[in-house]
Design a protein around this nucleic acid. Structure first.
Lengths: 300, 300
DNA sequence: TTGTAAGCGTTATCAC
DNA sequence: GTGATAACGCTTACAA
């Protein structure tokens, strides 16, 4: 059996409430007793039972991050950054993954209403897009924050990259590389994808470029793998590739690759702080927060 | 405020203990009352307070997975597989990430002794290798299981791929491709790396191959990125590349790439079941469990 | 079939 | 400064 406050109280000949206070530095008590308590607590290897503490305080000092899967950098980079940022604030971050499974997804959202965490960072997936469970959770006032993708209509802060600016930059780079048209691999699979699609079309118009036709072509997309696949399948030889986050290996022949990184660390930190605001004061700026992207990197 | 058993009891004119039993299908009680209780619970949106339940039962039906970082497939693939497997067994999986930080690492291990989870799957990192906190945790009899990497000397089940056989297979493929020597990129960074290094050397001897000299060369390693870098830096043109888990893109000129996948899903499932054994019966086979690798894939 | 009551390990509000 | 004492919300014998 684990040591409890009672064991320490018995060993020190005092009351459990005194031990509790001593161990939390709360209240004023004689230095002598305090030291004795702390010493025996250490000797007995005392660890507070968090279930009991949570029950009485109603708070867990724990934040969950809900994620569909962890493969993508857009999922695990924010997780890592938020974990260390929140740790510094005295909170533990736990990542819950539902892997596209509706039942698991809903169960995890349900858990949040059961005193297992004080708030949650949501990396929205397609499941969230019409999730009754998520709407219900948000309706209770439970503190949530979206990172990167979000669900329109749910009143919670959203932290994203400055996607419009980033896409405009990529299109400008495409034009500078001599492209007269572009293959656009952004779609409408989520809010980020959608925003990039719209921003890219707008920027193309500004540069007098078109989506199809003849002449030197650029490829713009989110993901290296997808871009490579399309190039192979359709035999495209672009003069420029614009891609988010990363490109492994060298640039293809006669082609400039422009990589637009995203600052997931800042995104996670801003999101964490917004969440802490909501958790601690129940007040929250529920709008959109755009994190500037680092300078683009040119390969080849 | 959230609805509690008392609210339902009041609404139904019965006792909280009756509500508790009705909601868990425990005990026998009149169908009428049971239905009324269930209906009002649903109407009031009742969700059991898990902190309270954990306190009284001493169990959380939660498993933690401890991971250094989530970038590598060896980290997130087991996480995803274990999450869905454990969900089916009535447990929630939460991933805790310490990102190479000693303080965070120890704090998370400490949490496990504080009734936040019933057991843990450990993806051992360099921090665990001489972690006093991990040794202390294991010494308490807290149920843990290692997946992939492990910490020698800690009495807990270890689930790995059949690395010896896999390495022997890669060396055989190298020989078949005409290689007379091999550049080995396995090191001694962790237990898996080490095991592969030894197994590969042994297999090379069996095939009469050497680590350096002249003649057609093979490169054997864990990671595509590392292999590509070494090839570039040292200007090596291998006749065969043996790599674990994945190779993106085509094979280099005049080179066969043999990819040896690992079955992380099975590994995670076996590990989960071993952990459940330990958690539920406190009995456990503490040895090594090797999961066969899927057939190797040949590219080029 | 249902109610009573004890208790899980803490924290917090009082007295003294 | 320190000790009773009452919660927190739930489960679980044991009575009735």
């Amino acid at each position: 059996m684990a040591t409890t406050l009672r064991d320490i109280a018995a060993a020190c000949g005092c009351d459990t409430s005194t031990v509790s206070r001593a161990l939390r530095g709360d209240g004023r008590l004689s230095a002598d007793l305090r030291d004795r308590i702390i010493a025996t607590a250490a000797r007995l290897g005392y660890r507070p039972n968090l279930a009991a503490r949570h029950l009485v305080t109603g708070r867990t000092r724990t934040v969950w991050m809900l994620s569909g899967g962890l493969e993508a950098p857009t999922d695990h980079l924010p997780a890592i950054a938020a974990a260390s940022h929140l740790r510094g604030r005295g909170y533990d971050l736990l990542v819950a993954v539902h892997q596209g499974d509706r039942e698991g997804h809903d169960r995890l959202l349900g858990r949040m209403r059961q005193q297992v965490c004080d708030g949650a960072i949501i990396l929205a997936s397609h499941l969230d897009q019409d999730s009754h469970a998520l709407v219900a959770l948000a309706a209770t006032g439970f503190p949530i924050v979206f990172v990167d993708r979000h669900v329109p209509g749910i009143p919670a802060p959203v932290v994203t990259s400055a996607n419009k600016a980033a896409c405009a930059g990529l299109v400008a780079a495409a034009a500078a590389a001599g492209a007269q048209r572009a293959v656009i691999l952004f779609g409408r699979r989520n809010t980020v994808d959608s925003e990039r699609l719209d921003a890219t079309h707008a920027a193309l118009r500004d540069h007098g470029m078109v989506a199809d036709g003849r002449g030197p072509v650029a490829i713009l997309g989110q993901d290296e793998q997808v871009i490579r696949r399309i190039m192979d399948q359709q035999g495209i030889h672009p003069c420029m590739i614009g891609v988010f986050d990363r490109w492994t290996g060298p640039a293809p022949q006669d082609c400039t690759v422009v990589v637009q990184p995203q600052d997931f660390t800042s995104m996670a930190e801003v999101a964490s702080d917004l969440l802490l605001d909501r958790m601690e004061q129940h007040v929250a700026p529920s709008g959109k927060h755009e994190i500037p992207c680092p300078a683009a990197i040119r390969i080849g």
